[in-house]
Amino acid sequence: MTEPMTGIATTQVTKAYPGSERPAVDDVSLHIADGEFMTFLGPSGSGKTTMLSMIAGFTPLSAGSITVDGREISRLKPHRRDLGVVFQQYALFPHLSVARNVAFGLTQRKRPKAEIDRRVGEVLEMVGLSGVRERFPRQLSGGQQQRVALARAVAYEPRALLLDEPLAALDKRLRDQLQREIAHMHRELGMTFLFVTHDQQEALTLSDRIAVFNEGRIEQLGTPAELYERPGTLFVAQFLGESNALRLRPGEVTIVRPERVTLHTGTESVAAGQQRRSATVTDVVYVGDHSRIWLRYADGARGCAVLGAGTTHEHRPGSEVVVAWHPEHEAVVPDAEGNPK
């Protein structure tokens, strides 16, 4: 494999913390293109933070290498890497005003005072916080603090921005709002973003590509649509949203997403060439813009169908239905039980 010239590349990066039996990050190679929005998605403990902090320089590698634009950085101190980092707990300096927090990176780079002032104003305006320059972090809400942290991390125009679960400490409404602001910042700045989250919805909404982490390894890497529609493993299928996981043939599992199935009261209405399976409705949940029909198949497998808001239906818990889908919407993955990790 030839070394990619621009962007961030990791080659066979491994981290084994002393005293733990399996590595926290295990042989991870990936390439983040210049300007890309890349997300590390995975459950807690899957090694996302460890991976990010090796790129940022907070954690030394056990093996492997990391390059930025072809330059090896894995042995550089964090302050020599020219990356911006946003933390889950904001990590604002409590004894410095908002303006001085945001100016910190510029001050370290010995920029002229006038330029620092101008730039601090610009980035605070970008995050909608021009009015709080002289406040201290404690005087701001969580959402405002995270906006200041974002402004601080991009103020000195680093080569890339790394964000470790930046929205996890915020409530739902703020999270959605900041999600949009982060997407907007990414477009506006054209900067490479590396975003870490355990929230699949967040990952699908924001990312150009997603690397799904499981037990220190990348399970699958692809665009949100690829991962959602064509999961490569049962883990990815189950981690990214609901699915109908059917064991139709031994050793493999057929995955069909809830939006891809139709429900019928008999087999007559099912179009020719479609796959069909009978199931029992266990629950019907009306969510406003759609309804979720929860299903149990004859072999005990659980499933789900999504019906759009306009659809009228008479499905009630206990009804017998026929679930149908087009074979091209299937994804077939190895059965984890016959293929243990």
């Binding site: 940022a56 320089g57 964090p78 911006g84 990176g105």
Partner: peptide, 24 residues
């Protein structure tokens, strides 16, 4: 984490200590 933040912002360890840790 504040020391990590200071590092990522471009402060070498001694600066991070003097500007962040010592005052706190």
């Amino acid at each position: 984490g504040l020391l990590h933040a200071a590092g990522s912002l471009g402060a070498p360890r001694p600066t991070a200590f003097l500007r962040i840790y010592l005052p706190l």
